[in-house]
Design a protein around this nucleic acid. Structure first.
Lengths: 342, 342
DNA sequence: GCGATTCGTCGAAGCGCTTCGATAGCTATA
DNA sequence: TATAGCTATCGAAGCGCTTCGACGAATCGC
C-alpha cells in the first residue's frame, strides 16, 4: 500500500502539496493537481483512514447505536439505516452500525470515548434513557431517534405519534366509526417508558375523547397469540366495536386471526388499521392491511443532519422535528356497520 | 481527553511503560502497574483508537458487509450479527456493520483499503460474487457467509443446505409422504446464482430421486401473493401432493392462504415444513409452522473465527464448515393422507 | 516601477500511540 | 569476583497524515 510520501515523490511535489490537492483546503495549480492525481491513480493510492483521523482529529465516521440486534432490524429500521447511510456519504461521512444491546451501552460509550466515531445516533430511545445521559456526561455528540421525557430540549427526531394517531382516528371517524379499539405494545414497554407506547396511548385517548368518543385501548405483547386474546377481550368489552387501530405488527396477525375465527369479515364487520408499521407488512395479511407506515427514510436523513449540525459549527443547527406516518392504503378499511345486530 | 503522556507524567514513568502496562506485551513490576492503573483511573484515560491503530498497523475492527439494508435484517441475520459481535469482543476485536447494498460493494472495498478494518465478513454471497473477487484482488482478508462456486477453497462458513434438505425430506417421508412439493426463492435468484437457492434446489431433487420419488419444485418470488399462486400451481400439478417444503418465508404465508382457501387442513390434508427459516416465524401462522431454522449464532461465531484465523498467523486456521438447520417443532406436520380421494 | 497582495508550494511540527534497542540494576553461575 | 543472563524501564523513532508558518514568484494598484 503506497503512502502519501510515495505519491509526492512520484509527482515531484511535497507531501503537503499532495494533501492539499486531496482535500482542496488550499489552492493548487491545475498542472500540479493533474500530476498529483495521475500519480495517485498510477500508484493505486488510498489515504490511510487512521492516519488521517489522527492528524485531523476527526474520524468522519458516525456510529448508529443499534440495539435491536437479536430481534433483527425491521423494514422501518432498514429504511432508516439506508437513508442515514446515504445522507452521511453525501456529507463526507461514513455510517457504521454498532451492534450493542441496550444494556451493553457502556461499551459503545467507551468506543466513542476512544474516538472511534465523531458522533453517535441513538435508536429506540426510552423515556428515561441512561444511554443518553451517559453520552451527554461524556460529551459525546449525539442525536436521538425518539425522545426522552424532556421533549425537545435534546437533539432528536421522531415519529409524530400525536398526529399519526389523530389522523388514524380522524380517518376512521370519517368512515363513520364511533367505537374504535386500540392495540398498543406491551404493558412492560409502557411501564419502561418506551416513548412510542406512552405517547400513542395518550394520543389515542385524546383523539377519542376530543370527539366525545370512548377510548378502548389495550396493551399487548408483541405476538400473534396474545394479539388474538387481546382482540377477543376488546370485542367482548365493547360489543359495538367496528374498528381496531393497532400499533403492534405481530399482534395484528392475531387480530386478523380472531376476527376470522369469529366469522367477522374485514372490513365488512370490523375495519383494521395498522399504524407506525413497516412498509410492506400490509401485504402479509389477507385482506391486505391498510397501514400508516413510519417515515423511516425521512427520519434517517434528518437524524444525520441533526447530528452533523452539532459536529460542525459551520453547519446550520437542525431543529428537532416530528414526522407523521404516511397512509398506505390496503383493503382493511370500510364504512362502519352496526355489529351488534348481526 | 487525557493522553498516554498525561498518564505517564502522573504516574512518574515513561510513556512506553504505560503502553506496556496497558498491553501486557512486556513485563511490568506489580508496583508500577498499580501506579499506572491508578493514574489512568484518576485521569479517566481512554486510549485513542486512531493513534493506536496507526501505530500498531491494526485497527482491531472487523467489518460486516451488510447488504440487506433496505430489507432490514431478519431474525437469522440478527442472531448471526449478535453472535459474531460477541465473538469478536471475546477476541479483542470490535464488529461494525457497513450498510452497503451489494451494488455499492466498491465503496466498502475502498473503506477496507483505507484501513478502516482489519478484515471483512461478507454476507449473502452469490455463486459468482464480484465482491469476493475484488476483496481477493485487493488482498483484504475476508470470510464469507455462503459460498462461491469454488466451494471450499475460499474461507467460508455456510448453512449445510444439502443436509438440511435431506433431513427435511427424510422427515416427511418418515411420516409417509411420497408426494412432496418444494417452494424455493425466485427464478431471478436462481439465475443470479444465489447459493442457497441453487444448492437447495439441487439437494431437493437429489433427496427425492434417491428415494425413487418425483421432485416437484417451483421457484417463487418472496411474497405471499406469489406464494399463493405457486401453491395453487403445485397442488394442480400433483393432485397427490401431501406435503410442501418451503424455503421462502414470505411465500409461506401464501402457501397457508391457498391451502386454507381450498379448504385443505394443515396438517390434516397437507403438511408444511419451512426450512432455513428465522427462529420464531413459525408462530406467525396458524397452525404454527414447523420449521428448520438457520444456525445463525453458530455461523456467526464460526465466521469470525474463520476470519481471525487469517488475520493472526498465530491462530489456528479454521476450516470451512457447513452447519445444518435445526428442527423447531410446530403443528404443521402430520402423517400423509391421501388427498385425491377427498 | 515599487511596495503590497495573492498564489502556489514547501518544510516541519505534531496527532497519540507502539515497539525496538539500549541500559541499569539484579541474581544466578562458575 | 568477574561473567552472563534476567527483569523492568526508558528514550527515540516511527505509523501516515494534516496544518501552520514561511517564502519565492507572479500580480496588482497607482
Amino acid at each position: 500500500m503506497s503512502t502519501i510520501a510515495d505519491v509526492a515523490r512520484h509527482a515531484g511535489v511535497s507531501v503537503s502539496t499532495v494533501s492539499y490537492a486531496l482535500s482542496g483546503s488550499r489552492p493548487i495549480s491545475a498542472g500540479t493537481r493533474t500530476r498529483v492525481e495521475a500519480s495517485m491513480k498510477e500508484l493505486g493510492y488510498q489515504p490511510n483512514a487512521m492516519a488521517r483521523s489522527l492528524a485531523a482529529r476527526r474520524t468522519q465516521v458516525i456510529a448508529l447505536l443499534y440495539p435491536e440486534v437479536e430481534r433483527g432490524l425491521g423494514g422501518t429500521g432498514g429504511e432508516f439505516v439506508r437513508a442515514a447511510a446515504e445522507r452521511c456519504r453525501e456529507q463526507g461521512y461514513q455510517l457504521v452500525l454498532w451492534p450493542f444491546r441496550s444494556d451493553e451501552a457502556d461499551q459503545a460509550l467507551t468506543l466513542a470515548r476512544q474516538g472511534m466515531a465523531d458522533g453517535v445516533l441513538v435508536m429506540e430511545v426510552v423515556t428515561d434513557d441512561q444511554r443518553v445521559a451517559k453520552l451527554e456526561a461524556a460529551r459525546v455528540p449525539y442525536a436521538m431517534i425518539g425522545r426522552t421525557t424532556d421533549a425537545g430540549t435534546r437533539p432528536s427526531v421522531d415519529v409524530d405519534f400525536d398526529t399519526t394517531v389523530e389522523q388514524a382516528v380522524a380517518h376512521l371517524v370519517g368512515l363513520g366509526h364511533r367505537h374504535i379499539g386500540f392495540v398498543n405494545h406491551s404493558q412492560a414497554m409502557l411501564d419502561a417508558g418506551y416513548g412510542p407506547t406512552v405517547r400513542a396511548a395518550a394520543a389515542f385517548d385524546k383523539a377519542m375523547t376530543d370527539r366525545g368518543l370512548v377510548p378502548v385501548s389495550r396493551t399487548c405483547e408483541d405476538s400473534p397469540v396474545v394479539g388474538r386474546a387481546v382482540t377477543a377481550d376488546l370485542l367482548d368489552a365493547d360489543p359495538d366495536l367496528t374498528a381496531i387501530v393497532t400499533m403492534n405488527e405481530l399482534a395484528t396477525f392475531g387480530v386478523y386471526a380472531e376476527l376470522h375465527s369469529r366469522g367477522l369479515s374485514i372490513p365488512g364487520d370490523v375495519s383494521v388499521l395498522g399504524i407506525v408499521s413497516s412498509p410492506g407488512v400490509g401485504t402479509l395479511s389477507y385482506p391486505p392491511l391498510t397501514t400508516m407506515h413510519s417515515p423511516g427514510a425521512a427520519l434517517g436523513r434528518l437524524a444525520v443532519d441533526c447530528l452533523l449540525g452539532q459536529l460542525d459549527p459551520a453547519r446550520a443547527a437542525v431543529p428537532n422535528q416530528l414526522i407523521p406516518c404516511v397512509l398506505e392504503p390496503g383493503m382493511s378499511l370500510g364504512p362502519a356497520r352496526t355489529r351488534r345486530g348481526a
